[in-house]
Structure formats: structure tokens, C-alpha cells
Write a protein that binds this DNA or RNA. Structure first.
Length: 564
RNA sequence: GUGCCUGUAGCUCAGUGGAUAGAGCGUCUGGCUCCGGACCAGAAGGCCGCAGGUUCGACUCCUGUCAGGCACACCA
């Protein structure tokens, strides 16, 4: 925030410490009564060999007071600064009005390329709540990086190759009915997949049959491949329905099969570099001196693995996009896998190994235990989204029966609730799926934020005055206004912090804080009042708040209806 | 067994080494002659897993320990 920087400079001038260091030391007091910003002097005590309280007093007495600071107090070792609320309001709101929907954006990224690998569902398997996290976290990071001036490339590394397709083809050949597959592809595919495992327990020869079909796929057999393509198309069609609902887009759908013909070269390269060793008939890169198990490149039967594909994909992406960063939004279970193959990239002599980042997130499980497609212990995302939308529609019918386009709004709010719920907490936390929590729309939830926005929009629509870009900061000095404006002022920092930590929850939290502060202001101060000037001043604040909430939600991939 | 992650209010979680540890849910109480009650206000609820250490100062950093989760080569 601009005032923090200027304040740090003034403090720097008097303490002779670098402004950046001061800036890091500046804090927000636990209680507004104490001040709006605080500078603790404990650290100075050591170097200056003086009592910190004395130093605080000295700073307070001698600092050149900037115009945005109204008064300075000391309390113990703290120098406490109180903003001139009118100047603060004036500056911050003018800034938001000027920048509009670009408020908080920057060109910090300077067009450098960030590849974001996210979502990556397995073809022919249902899209369940476990896949949601990678999808919404990746999508939000995409928007955040883009907002900060990076060129983002969203890649859906589909799980579209492997022995499971052999199983599916086998199952289809035995029990498949074409109509079911066309009508409800994923569920039909899941059914025959589950059935395959049941039957294979009784008749192990089915496994051999499945391996044979996969072998035929690998060998380019047309019958096998056309069935594979058919399954893939059916699945993608279903996935795209989900992605449409979520408003998620990818620049590339280059799945695992895309790298089939690119791996040989990489294996050769590994061979040339002398990194491959044979172990129990398989080809591995030994990582024992890095305290990791070996990274397997080729199985005993000569086929490739996950790691082989990931290494190949990384090299391909570097060559194709020349990324400055490549993020892998993948569950933390795969932490070791990523550490292993990142190390292999380093050992291959690629100096960009430190531009690869695993962005891990916690597991989603059910009260009954971990999700398991095979055991049928699974909650389909489509069902979750549908239930959330249905519930929203019920609430709208009850609370706002006159609302036009109810269905559209219910989608925006219901889906927003599910997405927000997945983004509000630190991504490393595990989630135990609970309908009660997902469908709760009170408190720290998406609908709460959307509701605050809708209220703001409603006021703007009903106002008797119009705002004209002119800000009257003098009239926005109440405690609630100060709190709200300070949060609006710090919004850009929240975006930067979120980008820095690859952590959308920082934006989600900050947006919640703004909505809360707005609701408090709303409760305590009428906006549409007889005093025209006062009304204009407050309308401007309402307008700016709505603008920032909209930006916050959009960075999370959530819509902000004007009415709900 | 080894490595990684997580332990903060009944539950879900915030908390760049700084002041009296904060929200939401749930529970209890109160609030629309007034811009949208999906809201607001208040109450109750805490040895910040435990023990050491570093520091003027530790929920935060270090070490140890306990508990839970995850991973540990022919799945992805």
C-alpha cells in the first residue's frame, strides 16, 4: 500500500535503516484504538544501545509527519500512527475508481510464461470431488498470475493412456452396450470398469486379456485405438460439461498419450548422460546419494512409466513454451514422485530444474474413508454442483421470488459456493467431505461474499444520486469506513502474496474480510440519505467495494451476480 | 523403519518473531416504522499436542517427543 511505503521511507530517513526492512517491520496493531499502523522499536534497541521506549519517543518527536498521518502516539516500544482518514479515503477510492476492474493488477510478471498443469482427470473415470481441488486451485492460480502480468498456459495433462484402457476394452467387448455408453458415458464406463474388477477376481484370464488389448494399443492396432479414441471422446464430452459449469478453460489438452512418441528420445538422452542403471531388469536413475529411492524410467517389460512421461512433458514444454515457471497442481501424495523427477531433470543438466514447482494440496476423503472409485465410495462432482444449485434455487424462491433468471443466478451462486468452499482454506489441509459444510451458505462462504456484492449493487441501483468519479474523502471517516477502506487498500498485496505462495486462499480470505467489513458499514450507516454530498461519498465507497469484491471473486473463478 | 505434511475454541480454520491469540459453523441472547435478515450485535467456549532451547520477546524459528495423514521402484 502506498502509504505504508511512504511511511517506511520517512522512518528510514530517521532510523537510517533500509526502507524495505522498515516496511517488513511495520505492522497493523491488534486494536484500532492503538493506531492504524505500528512500528516496534525493540530491534533498534540493540544497535542503538538505548531503551526501546526512549527510541520510540524519539522517533515520534522527530519524524517528518506525512500528510496522510493525522497523529502519532507512542505506547511502550511502539510508535503508533493514525491515518488521516479523509486523505486515506480520498487516495484509495480515487485509485480504485481510476483502475476499475484492473485494480490490484500489475505488470510484475512482464509477460514471462507460467505453465500451469492442473485438473488432469483420468479418462473413463468419473470426475469426483477429489478432482475438484486441482481444477479450482489451478484455475485460480491461472487468473492470479495472469492478473499480475504473466502469460499463462493452462495444461490439462489428461490420464488418457495406460492399462486401464485394456481393461475397459476387454469389459466393453464382454458386456458393453453401445446405447448406455452414448447416453451416460461416464457412468456406463464406470459400471463396466467396476464389473471388470469383480469378474477378474473370479476369472484372472481377463487380466491377461486386458494386458493384451493395451499391448495392441501400444502397437498401433486400429481396432484397439478406435475404441480408445471413442472412450476418450465420450469422457471429454462429459468433462467439458463440468468445466463449462465451473467456467474453467485450458489452453492445451495434451494428455499422457501425447507423449507416447516423444519418450524414446528422452530415454536415449538419459542413456547418453550415463544416468540410467539397470536394476532387477528395469531401467532406473539412481538417486541414493540424494536420499531418495530410484526413479524408474522403464519397467522390466520395457514399457514406460509416469515419471518417464513427466520428464518428457517437462522437456517438451520447456522447448515449446520456454516457461519461466511450471506449476504442477497435484495432490501431496505425489510429493516424492515430483522430487524424484525434478532431480532427474537437474542431473540431466537442464538449468531450469528450479523452475519446476509442485503445488501440493490436501486429500479429500469421506467420513467413511478415502475415496475409491472401484469400491464405489465416491461423490460425483456433477451431483455436488447440482445439489448446490438446487438448494440455491430453493433459497432464491423463498427469499427473492421476484428475481428474474433464477436458474442462471442459482448456478452462479451454487457453483460459487462449492468452489469457494474448496479455496477458502490453505490448500495443504485435508478435507473430509461434508454435505452440511458444502451446502452451508452462511458465514465464511461464497454466497456470503456474493450477497454482500448484491447488496452493494442494489444500493447503487436505488440511489438518488449518481457518482461521477469525484471522491469526498472528508465524509468517509467513520470507524467502519476506515476498516473497509484499509482492507480495500491492502487488496493488491493480498493478490501478490497469493501469487508468491501459490495460495488462492489468501485472496479468498481477504475478499471475505472485505465483505464482512462492508456488511458492518452497511449496518451502521445508511447510504441513501437526504444529504446529497454524504450520499455521494458513501455511494463511491459502495461502488469501490463492489468493484473489489468482483475482482476478488473473479480471481477465484467465481461469478458475482448483481441480484440473487 | 525412513522421509514429507498436519496438530490453535465442541467442529472447520486464520494468524510476515511483537501489544490482551482471532474468524466462521454450532449453542444461547438480542436486533428490521430504516438502502436486501444468505445480515448485524452480544455471550459462552483456549496449558496454540507435549517438553526443552534460541531471543528483549515464540502459536510462529531450532531440537526432541507424542498423535494423525501421506509416501517409500515395475499404477498414475
Amino acid at each position: 500500500m502506498i502509504f505504508d511505503i511512504q511511511l517506511a521511507e520517512e522512518l528510514s530517513a530517521i532510523t537510517h535503516l533500509p526502507a524495505q526492512e522498515i516496511s517488513d517491520m511495520l505492522e497493523i496493531p491488534p486494536d484500532r484504538q492503538l493506531g492504524d499502523r505500528a512500528f516496534p522499536c525493540f530491534k533498534l534497541a540493540k544497535t542503538m544501545r538505548k531503551n526501546p521506549q526512549f527510541i520510540a519517543q524519539e522517533i515520534a518527536d522527530n519524524i517528518k509527519k506525512p500528510n496522510f498521518i493525522e497523529r502519532i502516539e507512542t505506547k511502550g516500544a511502539y510508535v503508533n500512527f493514525f491515518f488521516n482518514r479523509a486523505v486515506l479515503a480520498q487516495t484509495v477510492l480515487e485509485d480504485i475508481l481510476n483502475k476499475g476492474e484492473h485494480y490490484g493488477s500489475s505488470d510484475k510478471g512482464n509477460g514471462s510464461v507460467v505453465c500451469i498443469d492442473f485438473s488432469a482427470p483420468n479418462i473413463a473415470k468419473p470426475f469426483h470431488i477429489g478432482h475438484l481441488r486441482s481444477t479450482v486451485i489451478g484455475n485460480s492460480l491461472y487468473k492470479i498470475y495472469e492478473f499480475l502480468g504473466y502469460k499463462c498456459i493452462g495444461i490439462n495433462h489428461l490420464g488418457d493412456w495406460g492399462t486401464q484402457f485394456g481393461k475397459l476394452i476387454t469389459a466393453y467387448k464382454h458386456w458393453g452396450i453401445k446405447d448406455d455408453l452414448e447416453k451416460e458415458p461416464i457412468k456406463a464406463l464406470l459400471d463396466i470398469y467396476v464389473r471388470f474388477h469383480d469378474e477378474a477376481e473370479k476369472d484372472p484370464s481377463l487380466e491377461d486379456e486386458a494386458r493384451l488389448w493395451f499391448k495392441r494399443m501400444e502397437d498401433g492396432d486400429e481396432e484397439a485405438l478406435s475404441l480408445w479414441r471413442w472412450f476418450k471422446d465420450l469422457s471429454l464430452r462429459e468433462f467439458n460439461k463440468i468445466y463449462d459449469m465451473l467456467g474453467v478453460k485450458f489452453d492445451y489438452y495434451t494428455g499422457e498419450s501425447f507423449y507416447n512418441d516423444k519418450m524414446d528420445r528422452v530415454v536415449e538422452l538419459l542413456q547418453e548422460k550415463g544416468l540410467l542403471t539397470e536394476s532387477q531388469g528395469a531401467l532406473v536413475v539412481d538417486l541414493s546419494q540424494y536420499d531418495m529411492p530410484p526413479c524408474m524410467i522403464k519397467k522390466t517389460d520395457g514399457t514406460t512409466l509416469y515419471a518417464t512421461r513427466d520428464i518428457t512433458a517437462a522437456i517438451y514444454r520447456k522447448e515449446t513454451f520456454d516457461f519461466d515457471k511450471c506449476l504442477y497442481v497435484v495432490a501431496y501424495q505425489q510429493d516424492l514422485h515430483f522430487r524424484q523427477w525434478f532431480k532427474v531433470i537437474e542431473l540431466m543438466g537442464f538449468d531450469w530444474y528450479d523452475k519446476l514447482f509442485h503445488v501440493p494440496f490436501g486429500m479429500v476423503s469421506m467420513e467413511e474413508g478415502t475415496l475409491s472409485t472401484r469400491k464405489g465410495r465416491v461423490v460425483f462432482l456433477e451431483d455436488v454442483l447440482q445439489k448446490a444449485v438446487d438448494r440455491t434455487l430453493d433459497i432464491i424462491k423463498e427469499k427473492n421470488p421476484g428475481l428474474e433468471n433464477k436458474e442462471d443466478v442459482a448456478k452462479q451462486v451454487g457453483i460459487g459456493a462449492v468452489v469457494f468452499h474448496d479455496l477458502i482454506n490453505n490448500r495443504i489441509k485435508d478435507i473430509v467431505f461434508s454435505w452440511d459444510q458444502v451446502l452451508n451458505f452462511d458465514g465464511e462462504t461464497g454466497p456470503y461474499v456474493q450477497y454482500a456484492h448484491a447488496r452493494a449493487m442494489s444500493i447503487l441501483a436505488k440511489a438518488t444520486q449518481t457518482i461521477n468519479g469525484e471522491v469526498v474523502g472528508d465524509l468517509l471517516t467513520e470507524d467502519e469506513a476506515l476498516e473497509l477502506i484499509d482492507l480495500l487498500a491492502r487488496f493488491p498485496e493480498a493478490i501478490e502474496a497469493a501469487c508468491q505462495a501459490n495460495e488462492p486462499s489468501i485472496v479468498a480470505r481477504h475478499t471475505i474480510d472485505i465483505a464482512q467489513a462492508f456488511n458492518k458499514f452497511y449496518k451502521n450507516h445508511m447510504v441513501i440519505v437526504d444529504d446529497d454530498e454524504l450520499q455521494k461519498a458513501r455511494l463511491t465507497l459502495v461502488y469501490a467495494t463492489a468493484q473489489v469484491i468482483r475482482i476478488g471473486l473473479s480471481l477465484l473463478g467465481i461469478q458475482a451476480p448483481a441480484k440473487m
